[in-house]
Design a protein around this nucleic acid. Structure first.
Lengths: 366, 366
DNA sequence: AGCCCCTAAGAGACCGGTCTCTTTTTCAAA
DNA sequence: TTTGAAAAAGAGACCGGTCTCTTAGGGGCT
């Protein structure tokens, strides 16, 4: 029935036209599904197309139409389940509207991010969804707008950039988490994040170049201040961007003169590593150490104790970002929109109640 | 210095040529980095390019060169950490060789897979990496070859297809897992997989359309037979392809007259759900139920008890697949290669020793 | 029959690069 | 100075589609 023709070059519209005895224009109309064509011509063309195993060349099509039907996505690390879910949301929404996804990993490195964006623009993606590594370096993001392509920021908004964004309500979430701990009697609460500064030290929120993390730290500090905890800032720990770094940082933290009685992890990868360290060191959880984290990763529900988390609607964030982008591609011209999705505190069992007398069990690592 | 020109159409080689006062061909030589050009001309062109904020159009370039510098990847579900790691491996290797990745989710549905492949071919990806949903339907995979594009199968080989593949040693892994359980005295061992048949019933390995799973079940059955366990086949359970399905299936399994004393989960998503069910039902693990799984997902190390797993080199599998594909793209012409990476049994604490007297604790769910 | 409108089809430019082929320039050796 | 080969630059076809513009037919209406 169908003859495989491995060596022959792929059939083109012109080939089909020739075989079916119509002009290239008519064949193109049938194959491209536009214009008006008689049934007779249509049948002839379709037959010839099948005969030649014609496959349209989207590249050529994109070239003339100026639309590639492709959206570029740049995330920090697709291996992180957070981005895994987000990309799935993006990709489902994109497919529903006939778009494809080109994926690039930045490894949270701005330079890699810049290169990736340039490549994607060169490939003529119709629009981009980016989870920017840093807020301070935005030149490459601004350039996207200059090329006339819409951009949607995912998970991390940048105030200086007048573009759409989809984020979770990080500030509120951090406040809820911190307040929970404070209400349970905790006063030594550490906040551990993958974000980093050149000195690896935290002085003020201006140091933090990732909006979502900054918001969280602000919420954390504010609730601490409200509760009258002195020098809350010293409890912020940066640079937990690899499992090794997290491990070292956690051990150092727990070895200090006054170790924290509770830790807030900025993402589930960090929480996992902290959990492992605590378990290895034989630290009773939550008795001696409470742990809460952002991102309701699948595993947080099955540990002993299960972890209290803030659930971010990650899949939905990805989905919303893609939908926003596609609206822009369909001509939506409104002012930049900032969609902030609500989070949900999921209380499980990783937070202990501490007496105010400060006589709870103490961690001791040698 | 640089003038943003938002409304102006993107600058082309011809524009740059005009401004710099050279021919289009010369400008193209400079911008495209080929041919020989005088320093004077080069400088003029570069200056003009900067002035106009020239950005190359990869689409146009691909059209003439016939190479898009893009590889298409079709996986079942990017949300599954298994594929997350694999895609990261692919994407890192691809980038190292200057390739981009277009990602498509099949949702383990052959029809969606077919559509995705057609789209990717239409987009003129240089080659594809596919984790095929079914072994029985290969027409769309064969067509890839007919278009002259190399294909590498990931995680699931298909004997009928003469193409490269990268898999883990599933057979050996299943044998190791089953043998471990048998040696610990287990004789009622269930195997739970996401694969399914039209009847949802398992008769023989011919029913299983995913090579990796078939190999695993064969290994499972063989070790069972060696151990003299009667009718091992009845312990194979299919259709755990959503968390709800897994949950129902697990509860049914544990309610049977003779429930299993151990379960082998075919992937970490299934294991997670089984673990949750066991915990909810108050089943002592491993005392009343042992659990082992394929895929050393991050969480398996932190549960109580931690789960004994088979570690597959997932990232490396993705990496190897991409490297193989790129070799083909660079003209490698050898016969199809089948790379089988070794797995590793990671013994943790989810397997109990059972006495031969069959008097261990029994599961009872009402 | 004459006129008009509408459908169908063809011709050919165009998108933005690459690449071949040809012509001009450069420069060193004779 | 002449000569010749190599280097540099230009002209224009080409990739495979889309799309505009033009021309050829086919009723319906007066």
């Amino acid at each position: 029935m169908k003859e495989p023709q491995p060596k022959t070059a792929a059939a083109t519209v012109a080939d089909v036209a020739r075989l079916s005895g119509v002009s290239k224009a008519t064949a193109a109309r049938v194959l491209g599904g536009y214009g008006t064509v008689s049934d007779k011509a249509r049948d002839a063309v379709m037959l010839a197309a099948q005969e030649l195993d014609y496959r349209p060349n989207e590249l050529a099509r994109s070239m003339t139409t100026g639309r590639s039907g492709t959206i570029g996505v740049v995330v920090g690390d697709i291996e992180n389940p957070f981005f895994g879910s987000a990309v799935r949301g993006i990709s489902d929404a994109a497919r529903a509207s006939g778009f494809n996804v080109v994926l690039a990993n930045s490894g949270e490195d701005v330079e890699a991010e810049r290169v990736a964006i340039n490549t994607l623009v060169a490939k003529r993606v119709d629009g981009l969804i980016v989870s920017p590594a840093q807020e301070s370096t935005v030149g490459h993001l601004e350039e996207i707008g200059q090329t006339g392509r819409p951009l949607v920021l995912l998970d991390r908004a940048i105030a200086a950039l007048a573009v759409d964004s989809v984020t979770a309500d990080d500030r509120q979430a951090a406040e809820a988490l911190t307040r929970l701990l404070v209400e349970r009697g905790h006063r030594e609460i550490a906040y551990v994040t993958a974000c980093d500064t050149p000195t690896h030290l935290y002085r003020d929120t201006g140091d933090i170049l990732t909006a979502s993390v900054r918001e969280r730290i602000e919420g954390f500090l504010e609730v601490g201040a409200e509760a009258g905890i002195a020098d809350m800032r010293r409890w912020v720990r940066l640079g937990a961007n690899t499992s090794d770094a997290t491990r070292r940082l956690t051990i150092d933290l727990l070895r200090e003169g006054t170790p924290p009685s509770a830790i807030i992890a900025s993402d589930s990868l960090i929480a996992l590593e902290i959990f492992k360290v605590a378990r290895e060191q034989g630290i009773d959880m939550p008795g001696a150490l409470s742990l809460v984290t952002f991102h309701d990763a699948a595993w947080t529900a099955v540990t002993t104790p299960p972890i209290t988390v803030v659930r971010q609607p990650v899949y939905e964030m990805g989905e919303a970002a893609a939908k926003m982008l596609i609206e822009r591609l369909n001509g939506e011209q409104c002012a930049p929109r900032h969609l902030i999705l609500p989070t949900q505190l999921v209380e499980r069992a990783s937070v202990a109640v501490r007496g105010h007398s400060d006589d709870g069990p103490r961690i001791r690592i040698i």
